[in-house]
Simulated scan of single mutants.
Amino acid sequence: MSQQRALILFAHGARAASWAAPFERLRDLTQARQPGVRVVLAFLELMQPRLPEVTAALIADGVSDITVVPVFLGQGGHVLRDLPLMVDELRAAHPQAAITVVEAAGENEAVLNALSDYCVNALGHPSPD
Rank of each mutant, 00 (worst) to 15 (best):
T67C: 11
A93V: 04
G106L: 06
A92V: 08
L41T: 02
A93P: 10
L44Y: 11
L58H: 05
R38H: 11
R91V: 10
I8M: 00
I59F: 06
A16M: 12
V39A: 03
V69A: 08
V79E: 00
Y118S: 12
G124Q: 04
A98S: 15
E45C: 08
Q34C: 12
Q4Y: 13
Q75S: 11
S18I: 14
V79Y: 05
H78M: 06
H12A: 01
A42K: 05
T100W: 07
A98E: 14
M1A: 15
L58T: 03
Q75K: 09
A114E: 15
T100S: 12
V39W: 01
G62T: 06
L29C: 06
D28T: 05
V71Q: 01
V54L: 03
D88L: 08
F43M: 06
C119V: 15
A14K: 02
Q4V: 14
I8P: 01
D61W: 12
P128Q: 08
A93S: 13
E53C: 05
L90W: 07
L85K: 11
E89V: 06
P70R: 00
L112P: 04
L90I: 07
V69S: 04
R33Q: 14
V111Q: 02
Y118N: 11
R81F: 10
T67M: 14
V63D: 02
V40H: 04
P126D: 08
E103G: 11
P49S: 01
G124K: 08
